[in-house]
């Protein structure tokens, strides 16, 4: 059992938790993720690591309420326990292994979309701690949905918030901000984009044109997260890779996003059914058009 030490709401449907998991906290590196299972009957859900405290033995996770399980999870409070908390999983970001001097001479651009700010944060923080300052673009729908702003601002070199509706920072998508920065004469050696698949796809289309090598963090459906099932397979450069062990970070210009987005939809009707079950509880007797009632 893994105790939740802190639980707070960051924005509408976005939550942060500190969880006691000493083995994970001791060994994790930026770019890795965990799998959590709430209770006996719960499913295994992959979540990126947002922060870690090796001394305290804690891991910070940030998640968005998008389905039945995350909806249940959002109701958990400090003092509750996760039945299972597994990690760290996946490969750390490449720069963790890179020579620091080489790294310091690189101009890096991080692009986060929505809840993607959470996995971007530990990477930017790690780089700051190792003397590397990077530019960070964070995009969200509106000002209210922008998360981790203060923390990100503290570790980023230049920090550029963007909102789709123009309520705060740059008005428009992250891609228009990238274009603008490049137009203004910024040269980037590498771009790291993390967020919804559609945002990563369009970022990659743009950076390919701009000739900026780009790394993305894939978020496909996962079950075990240790390489034993292949539910998370993605096509990279024409080859089949397992995101949980070969990734989650890949060369964005080689990823087949259309295939990845179709695969993400695989359980859409099951997922819709499960959400209705949680929302309506015992009062759910059909009407969702799928299940024909909760018999």
């Amino acid at each position: 059992m893994y105790k939740i030490l802190k639980a707070e709401k960051l924005a509408d449907k976005i939550y942060l938790m500190d969880v006691e998991a000493p083995r994970v906290a001791k060994h994790c590196e930026p770019g890795q993720f965990v799998i959590v299972k709430m209770d006996e009957k719960g499913e295994r859900i992959p979540l990126t690591i947002c922060d870690y405290d090796r001394e305290a033995g804690t891991i910070t996770i940030v998640f968005q309420e998008i389905g039945a399980s995350t909806m249940k999870m959002s109701k958990m409070i400090a003092g509750d326990y996760f039945r299972d908390f597994i990690g760290p999983l996946g490969r750390p970001s490449d720069f963790v292994e890179e020579d620091l001097e080489t790294l310091k001479n690189k101009k890096m651009l991080f692009v986060a979309g929505g809840v993607g700010a959470a996995p971007v944060y530990p990477q930017v923080k790690w780089l700051k701690e190792h003397g590397v300052e990077v530019d960070v673009i964070v995009g969200s729908k509106t000002k209210d949905m922008l998360i981790l702003e203060k923390k990100m601002n503290e570790v980023a070199g230049n920090y550029y918030p963007c909102t789709d509706d123009g309520t705060y920072g740059h008005a428009g998508m992250v891609t228009t901000k990238i274009e603008k920065l490049v137009e203004e004469g910024n040269k980037y050696d590498v771009c790291i984009a993390i967020g919804p698949m559609i945002m990563m796809k369009f970022t990659c289309l743009l950076t390919k044109k701009l000739e900026i090598p780009t790394i993305v963090s894939m978020n496909p459906i996962m079950v075990d997260g240790t390489g034993m099932c292949g539910a998370c397979r993605v096509i990279v450069g024409g080859e089949v890779k397992f995101a949980c062990v070969d990734g989650p970070e890949f060369d964005g210009h080689l990823v087949d996003f259309d295939n990845a987005m179709k695969r993400q939809q695989m359980y859409r009707t099951e997922e819709g059914r499960a959400i209705l079950k949680v929302q309506e509880g015992d009062t759910h007797h059909g009407g969702c058009g799928n299940c024909g009632g909760d018999n």
Binding site: A231, V234, R263
Partner: peptide
């Protein structure tokens, strides 16, 4: 082989 509806027996 990466189409939806294709599984490894393990999964």
């Amino acid at each position: 082989e990466t189409a939806n509806g294709v599984f490894s027996a393990n999964e």
